[in-house]
């Protein structure tokens, strides 16, 4: 009888121990839930001082494997159209890049295969081959300036980056390094960011969390 009690007690406790492992966060995510949308902006920028914008005609595919390119898949076409419409909805007028727009929009897909790299903030890929050369916007030889945004995440897979450039205040510095400032950045990260069906909700999210991004004042 005593033996039985010991046995029963132990089996009960062993069962409890075995069933009490940790809740595994990565197994508890849908594709939609795995994605994060990060936006950063230049606090010194007054977004109502800009009226016109232009957008790239394809999407840069940036990788660290050396096979970078500019692409225009159906995903890229939809991304360009959706971002364009979102800026128009915020009061900005789309013009050709030859019509000296106030703002320029760069679109990039990032496909790096790092496993764990701590990143100082968005914009780190601006020096990569494959990123938009400022010659595209009529500023050959200029460099990008990304304000020191905070960086939170290490980086290990596909992402989409939308960079908003301030062409209006692109005044050459005498003898110095000419730079175009990126005044807004949105990054889409997680599973399914390269899936066309997710574009609408992802772009809606980054504009919703950026109410200051408007030609007519904060939304």
């Amino acid at each position: 009888m005593k033996r039985l009690w010991i046995l029963m007690g132990f089996s009960l406790v062993t069962a409890a121990l075995l069933s009490s492992c940790r809740k595994e966060p990565l197994n508890n995510l849908t594709q939609e839930e795995s994605r994060i949308y990060i936006t950063n902006y230049d606090k010194n920028a007054n977004f109502t001082t800009y009226k016109t914008f232009s957008i790239v005609d394809s999407v840069a595919v940036i990788t660290n494997r050396g096979d970078h390119q500019k692409a225009l898949t159906s995903y890229d076409q939809k991304l360009i159209a959706t971002v364009t419409k979102s800026f128009q909805d915020r009061g900005y007028t789309l013009v050709a890049k030859t019509a000296s727009p106030d703002l320029a929009v760069n679109l990039s897909r990032i496909d790096n295969t790092y496993s764990s790299v701590i990143i100082g903030g968005p914009g780190y890929w601006a020096g990569y081959p494959g990123y938009w050369d400022l010659g595209y916007w009529g500023y050959p030889g200029w460099g990008y300036y990304f304000p020191p945004y905070y960086g939170v995440f290490s980086y290990n897979e596909r992402a989409v980056s939308i960079d908003l450039l301030d062409l209006k205040n692109a005044t050459p510095k005498a003898g110095g390094q000419n730079q175009i400032t990126t005044i807004w950045n949105a990054m889409l990260r997680g599973s399914g960011v390269w899936t066309g069906a997710n574009i609408d909700s992802m772009i809606a999210a980054v504009f919703t969390q950026s109410p200051y991004l408007s030609a007519t004042g904060t939304k």
Binding site: R22, I36, T39, N185
Partner: peptide, 30 residues
């Protein structure tokens, strides 16, 4: 001993110093 604390928070916008992050948070502590 061992104890595992967990909470999943539905998608929300977390404001930061120079921007915001929209995410589903899972908070764990063991």
């Amino acid at each position: 001993g061992y104890q595992d604390f967990y909470e999943k928070v539905p998608r929300a916008i977390y404001p930061g110093k120079d921007g915001a992050i929209s995410a589903v948070q899972q908070r764990t502590l063991q």
